[in-house]
């Protein structure tokens, strides 16, 4: 895949990258304090920018803004220019393409987390998350940590780690990347009559806030609190993971609490 990429990029530019090879040799021989160093480095990065842009485009439509991806790919390119050793006998693209791809992949793995979570835990989180959906299918209900541990062949403490890592997750992230598409089949839209807010005394304050929510968030709130569906059932119906439903609910409830307090004040809301 990476060699096909180098070829593609090279063909795309009509072999012009090969003409840049002598500049790498020159760069290697110039001191970093020499003004010529910066000049060569800038030229090499600028000339190879289409490679970074090409790779960034390959990762588009995965929930990350294109400009972020291009920036990350460009960072990867700069690293590649700085670390490339022309003495090794490989051409720059064979070295740069995997370096840039690695940088973009790392970006996808890392940006999902609000705090720095070791990769080992991120991977554990993903395996626990997928075990939850497999086991939910098999059992017809949400599994417990001991069932997840047995299924994955890991200890319960390791399952706890994976479950807790979820709390450090930012919500637009890998989880959505794996399970969402831009067009979520929401089926029948949730109408006013479905909300059954009749007996809720602050319904006049709640109604406009629910209407402000995204379609998916509103649907999750209605299904959980007005239709008594479990998070696992909702996850299956909407096509996202249970952990993702959990995060969306937590975020939505916090948002509703905050808005209720600031919009109408605690006196009229809860009094």
């Amino acid at each position: 895949m990476t060699s096909a990429d180098s070829e593609h990029a090279a063909h795309h530019r009509g072999q012009s990258y090969e003409e840049l090879a002598p500049l790498f040799a020159e760069l290697a021989g110039v001191s970093r304090q020499d003004p010529r160093y910066e000049e060569l480095r800038d030229k090499l990065v600028t000339e190879h920018l289409p490679v970074a842009q090409h790779i960034a485009r390959r990762f588009s439509h995965r929930g990350e803004p294109q400009e972020d991806l291009t920036q990350v790919a460009t960072l990867g390119l700069i690293n590649a220019v700085d670390r490339f050793d022309p003495e090794r006998g490989v051409d720059f693209l064979s070295y740069a393409v995997p370096t840039i791809m690695g940088e973009v992949r790392r970006h996808f793995r890392d940006t999902g987390w609000a705090v720095r979570v070791p990769r080992r835990l991120q991977e554990r989180h993903l395996s626990v998350s997928s075990a939850i959906s497999t086991l939910s299918q098999e059992l017809g209900r949400a599994p417990s940590p001991s069932e997840i541990a047995k299924h994955l062949g890991i200890t319960r403490n390791q399952v706890y780690e994976g479950l807790e890592a979820s709390n450090a997750y930012r919500s637009s992230s890998l989880d959505e990347l794996l399970t969402d598409t831009d067009e979520i089949p929401l089926g029948d839209a949730i109408g006013e009559h479905d909300l059954e807010l009749g007996e809720v005394e602050n319904r006049e304050a709640i109604r406009p806030l629910l209407a402000e929510l995204g379609e998916r968030e509103r649907r999750i709130v209605v299904l959980r609190f007005f239709r008594s569906m479990t998070q696992t059932q909702i996850a299956e119906q909407i096509g996202i993971s249970q952990m993702h439903v959990s995060r969306l609910l937590s975020r939505t409830l916090a948002w509703l609490r905050n808005r209720l307090e600031t919009d109408v004040g605690p006196e009229t809301n809860e009094r």
């Binding site: 939850i132 209900r141 949400a142 599994p143 417990s144 940590p145 001991s146 997840i148 399952v159 706890y160 479950l163 807790e164 709390n167 479990t230 998070q231 696992t232 249970q242 952990m243 959990s246 609910l249 937590s250 409830l253 916090a254 609490r257």
Partner: peptide, 23 residues
Amino acid sequence: GDLAMRADFDVDSIADLRLAVDE
């Protein structure tokens, strides 16, 4: 969340308890 996990509640209940305590 920690207590519910260690008591081996299912993952739905663990998440519900966290939401409930928040509320």
